[in-house]
Design a protein around this nucleic acid. Sequence first.
RNA 1: GGGGGGAUACCAAAGUGGCCAACUGGGGCAGACUGUAAAUCUGCUGUCGUACGACUUCGGAGGUUCGAAUCCUCCUCCCCCCA
Length: 376
Amino acid sequence: MTFELTATDKDTNARAGIISTDHGDIHTPIFMPVGTVGSVKGVFHRDLKEEVQAEIILGNTYHLYLRPGTAILEQAGGLHKFSAWDRPILTDSGGFQVFSLAENRKLKAEGCEFRSHIDGSKHFFTPENVMDIQRSIGADIIMAFDECPPGTAEYGYAEKSLKLTQQWLERCVKRFDETEGKYGYTQALFPIVQGCVYRDLRLKAAEHVASLNREGNAIGGLAVGEPTEQMYEMVELVNTVLPTDKPRYLMGVGTPVNILESIARGVDMFDCVMPTRNGRNGMLFTSEGIINIRNQKWANDFSPIDPNGSCYTDHCYSKAYLRHLFISGEMLGPQIASMHNLGFYLWLVREARVKITEGTFGSWKNAMVLKLAQRL
RNA sequence: GGGGGGAUACCAAAGUGGCCAACUGGGGCAGACUGUAAAUCUGCUGUCGUACGACUUCGGAGGUUCGAAUCCUCCUCCCCCCA
């Protein structure tokens, strides 16, 4: 995997670049649709490629390990072949599940014991076996196994947690470097900066991560309950330390506005369940603002879902019809909404890329931020 | 013609003297969702009020009672069985 910086904005820290992987190029800034169990929920690969124009998608180590399991994935020849997705894939390590499935796990220095959310069975994740599992899944970019503490964590806990994450990171790197890809193409390991909302911890974590000199770096533990302004502050701070010649990935973020603000602070890669999950639940992100398509007021609005949208669904279907689908519990509704939202997110980052290249990102971003946060 | 059963809020359906403005579903309305245990979850759903509360309701009209959706009388309508 390589990264080439192709443009830098004059007014902000925004950058444009190209990540090259064995499964193709990724133009940054980029949004990566989340496909936890090997499926971007409700969206066909063909639409993901041709309409949404997704260049890379996510998978999740914890979920894929439980189902279908590494044996099946290895027999299939890795997740790309298994799922018939031939573009790049990034897998999260299961670190987020240490956070989101907190009731079902026990943290230890050695690793993390999980109770499967499916059948209650016990599983033990360590930095080493998480690297091995991600080798079996075969993602182009794999993530270090970390602990993601809640945004409200107190300093003492945050400090302790960071120490654990850093120890785990060393072990991840060691294991990763001792092993190699199983399917004939290369993989890259991204370390993750933790440290909650504490400046000194974040700086320390960023310096540690930078010193490892990996092919890309991630910022984790944000958008997990802390105020948005603190998130921006942390992103800005961490990016003063993370190398400029490596892609920076802000994990799990976020709203369209979060993404624009973070691009302005030097982030290159994003992922979030928001466009798909909120889409399934009737929330549309459009070029004019946010729509709750279930609201009564759209019942007789026969205008297209998003007249400026880049997907065929945006022009093909009306708001009134999409509302009808949601109200009627038709599965086509969530599918259309998911595709629309993903299409919008990808349009947004492509547009950001153009503006960065043209040198007009700053003013464009400010105008967009005002528009996109509006509730229609 | 005879006998029996029923009528409760938008729909269905509990409730059969006070704890009932009325269980529960559905529907409707609104909200939440950030490295996905989520096609999920939450709230509201008689009127007025932010709320404490006030007012009007259980087919209709009377009545009994301190008190009625619940008991009595009459009326209207619906369903079932027999002829």
